[in-house]
Design a protein around this nucleic acid. Structure first.
Length: 418
DNA sequence: TCTGGGGTCCTAGGACCC
DNA sequence: TCTGGGGTCCTAGGACCC
């Protein structure tokens, strides 16, 4: 059996833990740059605020209903997540941390699955204040479905599929849009063939599913029939790509701030690579205009370059990114977002040096970055940075409603008055 | 006026090779 | 005028997830 633990309204719940006055109040959390809604409490969902919706479109609902609005605070959510995950790991022999708020656990051989899940749930709530739901079933996809019903039940929060009739009834009740692996495109396609529930989907001919939805669709269908296609992957594999990108806080129509942002993103990518102990074999740069703009055609500039030798050296990655930027930047456009991607990573200790590479230089740089990373991690990010990242950084984020970093910054610790 | 960021996997088609 | 068959690798783009 597989169990899926999923935190309820995770970001909104994190904000609530340290601010109990928000209990039963509608809360939303915004994306970077305060652009879109990326998390909602149940109360906010009930007001009709949708996932991913731009804030300006729901400004009226927010104002009229006293909805509490938070800028995204990843330092807080990341730290709360690791607390939840470490508690789950203690109680489960095999666990795959699937996302910031979800984990699959192998319940094979567990005698009383529901009892164990309920215990997990109460321990997490007691120790972290984060509410979770747990779904249990034969396969990952069915565990996702079970989790959906665990969340729907009031008060309980644990749901297990034990027999076929129960599964069939659940799938008949589940809109096909809620399935793990059905996005907006597939949904439209399936609806147009009269497939509306998960049960309708399971009835479809396998060849048809393969043709219309590739092997991914077929695996999903088989999982819903109880045939496991996805195992529990408990060892986090090295990331294949690493990306750093941001929207600009203000509109940008000159090269200078874009250049600064690209240097900063490239340096950040290099730092992330060093944290993972990886080296990348290619660098890509993205530069785009507003896709929703009516006054200007959408421009999406994207270019990659292969490196002679895989690297995690900030200066090398920055230099590659600068060259790429030069080749995609066009005068006269108003840009809204830039980014750098590094990819095809290899373990840092297995890098094949190119013929012309000096081992000595590489060692020197390695020592330099070890010191830079140490200082930035212990004394605050960007204490030491490349000059090209800019001092004023006008392109930086907009975060107007940021909550304190309750758990990761001394100055923000919660004060208890006796 | 105002629309996130960071990932994964799969496929079709082009380039290239023998 | 007539122009094969079979393979690999790479990449852009699509679709999905949280």
């Amino acid at each position: 059996m597989i169990a899926l633990a999923d935190c309820n309204n995770f970001y909104a719940s994190c904000e609530r833990v340290f601010n109990p006055g928000l209990k039963h109040k509608p809360i939303v959390v915004l994306s970077n740059n305060d652009g879109c809604i990326i998390a909602r409490s149940n109360e906010a969902k009930d007001l009709g605020i949708k996932m991913g919706e731009p804030v300006f479109k729901v400004r009226n609902i927010i104002n009229n209903n006293n909805v509490y609005v938070f800028s995204t605070n990843f330092a807080l959510y990341g730290d709360m997540s690791s607390r939840v995950m470490s508690l789950l790991s203690d109680m489960s022999p095999e666990i795959e941390i699937y996302s910031i708020d979800e984990a699959f656990m192998n319940f094979t051989g567990v005698k009383n699955t529901v009892q164990l899940a309920s215990k997990m749930k109460s321990i997490i709530t007691k120790s972290t204040g984060i509410p979770i739901s747990i779904g249990i079933a034969e396969t990952k996809t069915l565990a996702k479905v079970a989790n959906y019903f665990a969340k729907k039940q009031t008060g309980n929060g644990v749901y297990e599929f034990t027999d076929q009739v129960q599964i069939e009834n659940a799938l008949k009740e589940l809109p096909v849009s809620k399935l793990w692996g059905v996005g907006s495109r597939h949904l439209r396609m399936l609806n147009s063939y009269g497939v509306n529930t998960a049960y309708d989907f399971v009835q479809l001919n396998e060849e048809w599913v393969l043709e219309k939805m590739t092997i991914m669709g077929l695996r999903m269908q088989r999982e819903l029939k109880g045939n496991s296609c996805f195992g529990i992957d408990s060892y986090p594999s090295r990331k294949k790509n690493i990306r750093t990108s941001r929207s600009f806080a203000v509109k940008v129509n000159s090269l200078q701030p874009i250049h600064e942002s690209i240097v900063a993103h490239a340096a950040k990518c290099a730092e992330k690579l060093r944290m993972e102990n990886s080296c990348a074999q290619y660098v890509s740069v993205i530069l785009k205009t507003n896709p929703f703009s009516k006054s200007q055609d959408y421009y999406y500039g994207y270019k990659s370059i292969n490196l002679d030798t895989p690297t995690n050296d900030s200066i090398e990655i920055v230099n590659a990114a600068k060259i790429l930027l030069g080749s995609i930047y066009k005068e006269g456009l108003i840009y809204t977002k830039s980014g750098v991607i590094v990819g095809d990573t290899v373990p840092a200790d297995q890098v094949q040096l190119s013929l012309f590479y000096s081992e000595q230089d590489r060692e020197k740089r390695k020592n330099l970055y070890r010191s830079v990373d140490f200082i930035n991690q212990s004394m605050g990010r960007d204490k030491i940075q490349l000059l090209g990242q800019g001092i004023a950084r006008k392109w930086k984020l907009k975060q107007e409603n940021l909550s304190p970093c309750y758990t990761t910054r001394w100055a923000d610790l919660l004060r208890v008055h006796c």
